[in-house]
Simulated assay, not measured.
Amino acid sequence: MPTKPATRRPSARTLQKGQQTRAAIIEAALGLASHMGLEGLSIGTLAEVTDMSKSGVFAHFGSREELQISVIREYHNKFEEEVFFPAIRQPRGLPRLQAMFENWVKRVSVEIDSGCIYISGAVEFDDRPGPVRDALAGMVKAWHAAMERAIRLGIDVGHLRDDTDPAQMLFEVHGLILALHHDARFLRNPGAVERARAGFARTVSYYAAPKVVAFPSPAHVR
């Protein structure tokens, strides 16, 4: 009885090359999505930008939806590297919370000419249920949860009042970022970054414990 030929497994070198190609495609897609939005992504456009065939790009993702989700994950990874991980090296309490906000402001400042996928994606998918919206909302909620934990730690170490509502403070801080993005990117208003920082200082002052006088600005902190 004839036997079936053994299936050849891809070599480690082939797998590595495939991973590198996929990473390069995602990087190009992230650049496109920053300017055109997630809905602006298409296999055809990406194939043209990366000088690949449509079938070559499609083979790495299988669908436009999976491509969009991969871009969201990559954006989140970069956001964590630039905003979250440097900040958690700061002491618990207000120093860490201030560093998180300052790094967030720096990130938004860089994105003024391109766009924030968290914000633009929310506009695109706010009323469109599905895996892409779920992935995007999940990443945003993960960041908000990290900010809320930092606020709770601020209460625990005595930097913020015991009656501080972490969800309310987070809402106010997030509102400053949304206003910064709107005024800096859409209205092109000068001084938007300074106003966001002033708003954060005022918010912290409101919630600060009585014994807390002030903390140095973490503008130099990464």
Rank of each mutant, 00 (worst) to 15 (best):
Val212Glu: 00
Pro218Asn: 08
Phe61Cys: 03
Val57Thr: 01
Pro95Gly: 07
Arg13Tyr: 14
Phe171Met: 13
Ser109Leu: 03
Asp162Arg: 08
Gly62Tyr: 12
Pro10Asp: 09
Val213Glu: 14
Ser205His: 15
Val105Cys: 00
Asp165Met: 07
Val123His: 09
His144Ile: 13
Val193Gln: 11
Phe171Pro: 02
Arg133Pro: 01
Val123Asp: 12
Ser205Phe: 14
Ala208Gln: 14
Arg185Asp: 13
Gly138Ala: 14
Asp51Pro: 03
Leu46Arg: 06
Arg73Ala: 12
Ala47Pro: 15
Glu80Asn: 07
Gly40Asn: 05
Pro91His: 06
Ala99Leu: 03
Ser63Pro: 07
Ser205Val: 11
Arg152Lys: 13
Ile69Gln: 05
Met169Gln: 07
Val110Gln: 01
Ala142Lys: 15
Ala179Cys: 03
Ala137Val: 14
Phe61Met: 02
Gly138Cys: 14
Glu65Gln: 15
Arg133His: 13
Ile88Phe: 14
Gly154His: 14
Val221Gly: 06
Ala87Asp: 07
Leu180Thr: 10
Arg22His: 01
Ser217His: 05
Gly175Tyr: 13
Val221Thr: 13
Met139His: 09
Phe186Tyr: 05
His182Gln: 09
Tyr206Met: 02
Met1Asn: 10
Arg96Glu: 13
Pro91Gly: 05
Gly40Pro: 00
Val213Thr: 10
Arg73Glu: 12
Thr164Glu: 10
Arg92Thr: 11
Phe215Ser: 08
Trp143Glu: 03
Ala29Asn: 08
Met147Leu: 05
Val221Leu: 13
Thr14Met: 04
Ile43Tyr: 10
Ser109Arg: 06
Gly158His: 12
Gln68Arg: 15
Lys106His: 02
Val173Pro: 07
Pro129Asn: 15
Ala99Gln: 04
Pro10Gly: 04
Gly56Phe: 01
Gly121Val: 15
Val213Ser: 10
Glu82Tyr: 02
Met1Lys: 02
Glu82Thr: 03
Ala23Thr: 10
Gly138Asp: 13
Gln20Ser: 02
Phe79Val: 04
Gly18Trp: 03
Asp134Pro: 05
Ala6Leu: 11
Leu41Trp: 03
Ser63Val: 06
Leu187Gln: 08
Val110Cys: 01
Leu97Met: 04
Arg185Cys: 13
Thr3Cys: 08
Ala12Ile: 08
Thr7Ile: 01
Tyr75Ala: 10
Leu187Trp: 00
Met139Glu: 12
Glu124Val: 00
Thr164Pro: 10
Arg185Ser: 15
Ala135Glu: 07
His35Pro: 01
Asp134Tyr: 15
Met1Asp: 07
Phe200Val: 11
Leu160Trp: 12
Asp163Glu: 06
Gly31Leu: 08
Ala219Arg: 04
Gly191Gln: 04
His181Asn: 09
Ala47Asn: 09
Leu170Cys: 14
Leu180Ser: 02
Leu94Met: 05
Leu187Glu: 03
Phe125Tyr: 15
Ser53Gln: 15
Pro166Gln: 03
Ile25Glu: 01
Met100His: 02
Val105Ser: 01
Phe79Asp: 06
Ala47Tyr: 04
Glu74His: 00
Leu94Phe: 05
Ile72Arg: 04
Gln20His: 09
Glu111Gln: 11
Ser114Glu: 06
Val221Phe: 06
Arg64Glu: 01
Tyr75Gln: 08
Asp163Cys: 05
Glu102Asp: 04
Ala29Ser: 09
Ala23His: 11
Ile177Ala: 02
Pro166Gly: 07
Lys54Glu: 13
Leu153Asp: 13
Ser63Glu: 09
Pro2Leu: 14
Val157His: 05
Val108Pro: 05
Arg149Leu: 11
